[in-house]
Design a protein around this nucleic acid. Structure first.
Lengths: 219, 219
DNA sequence: ATTAAGTCGTGATTAACTTCACATATTCAC
DNA sequence: GTGAATATGTGAAGTTAATCACGACTTAAT
């Protein structure tokens, strides 16, 4: 499928570029340089040029990049012409935050349905997304291939097992549990407690210089 | 401060190790091998041994690691003996999720206060954390050095500026905005929309093999 | 005591990614 | 047109991290 040549680090930055290009177009800008882009997304301009170069020569020397062309290119590359359907498991505070987040706005990714065990929530809608009972998950899931996991950690393994059996191929896991899946299922962990603790650790042990940025700010 | 020799990639994994060691101790286990640890946290066992080795010889050949010793060591290394105070800016769904999350349980990191612009929320408490008006931020912040930003993107720059002036040194930024800060302030971005989009991109363009894991599952 | 099995710590290697630096091409002002 | 300024695309170098593979040591069983 496509060029598998594109480094993963580059792939992770593509959505960021895409979003910012959308902003630029809405502002009516027609051209942009890697330097401008760099300041906006906080990625070194050489890295941006390298990233783009994996897809060929998208820019013009002495000019920069044409916003509309670049945007069209990324739209295709990021499959933005087809809607990606997502399921959300666990309608707590974090889950609710996702339901109220309008991903479709410039992502063409949509949470189609949500599940929870709380009878108070079942049958309601949040952000236009219907909430079903977790027991009905298998029959409701249909052909959805991506799930967001915002449930208590102790439920993670059991629910994951059920998702995998039903054919889910991608899981965005917000539980602290390190879930086990077959080789053909991709899991991205986002562990809020660890992110916070890591930030604190860096603050105490990797002091940044007031001037002369030998170390980068974000990672 | 300490050894700056520890790779950032290692530092990011320390909180993960720490949490799992806590679990082990609660289960009454007294010893653990890098192989066991590897299966639990999904990090290659050689990487774990390498990570630990930056702190000296913590294990014993043919035996593994003593859970209690290791735990005590990491407690010191991760400064778990002193409480780290954190402020939360923006009490929406995402912010509320944080307030209800008991970080202190095994982190010794505590959200001390929260701010919001909504008069409905000001004066209340969530998860034991008092909510103040955003206009009172400067006078209430005191000596807190770390902030979690869960506000709308368009507010991000203005609030960040105020936080920086007040002396905040670390920001966990959940807004899509790429905020600008002086060199001595550290920002970690967690961009939920981008995480989701990146996962979808990987699913479509980097298919995983059912067997023979040439590519890793998590990143 | 001897042996087999287990496990660490690490030198060496490989891999992945970032950044530098510059030849080359384009634009723009006058 | 001409020259100065601007920017790309990329070879090469640098940086960081992951992984291999094995010597050295420990444990435990017989």
């Amino acid at each position: 499928m496509d060029q598998n040549k594109i480094p993963q680090a580059t792939a992770k930055r593509l959505p960021l570029y895409y979003r910012f290009l959308n902003n630029l177009q809405m502002q009516g800008k027609t051209r942009v340089s890697s330097k401008e882009l760099s300041e906006a997304v906080k990625v070194d301009s050489a890295t941006i040029r390298r990233d783009f170069s994996y897809f060929g020569a998208l820019g013009k020397k002495g000019y920069g990049y044409n916003v509309e062309y670049l945007l069209g290119f990324f739209r295709k590359t990021l499959d933005q012409d087809e809607l990606t359907e997502v399921a959300l498991i666990g309608v707590g505070n974090l889950g609710t935050a996702f339901l109220n987040y309008n991903f479709t706005k410039n992502n063409n990714t949509k949470i189609m349905l949500a599940f929870d065990a709380d009878p108070e929530k079942v049958g309601k809608e949040i952000g236009g997304v219907p909430i079903y009972h977790i027991d009905d998950m298998e029959e409701r899931l249909g052909n959805v291939k991506v799930a967001i996991l915002t449930i208590p950690a102790q439920e993670a393994d059991r629910i994951t097992e059920r998702l995998v059996v039903k054919g889910i191929k991608g899981i965005l896991n917000f539980t602290p549990a390190r879930i086990t899946v077959p080789d053909d299922v991709r899991v991205h962990h986002i562990d809020l407690a660890i992110e916070l603790q890591a930030l604190v650790y860096f603050l105490k042990h990797y002091p940044l210089e007031k001037m002369g940025n030998e170390e980068e700010n974000t990672y």
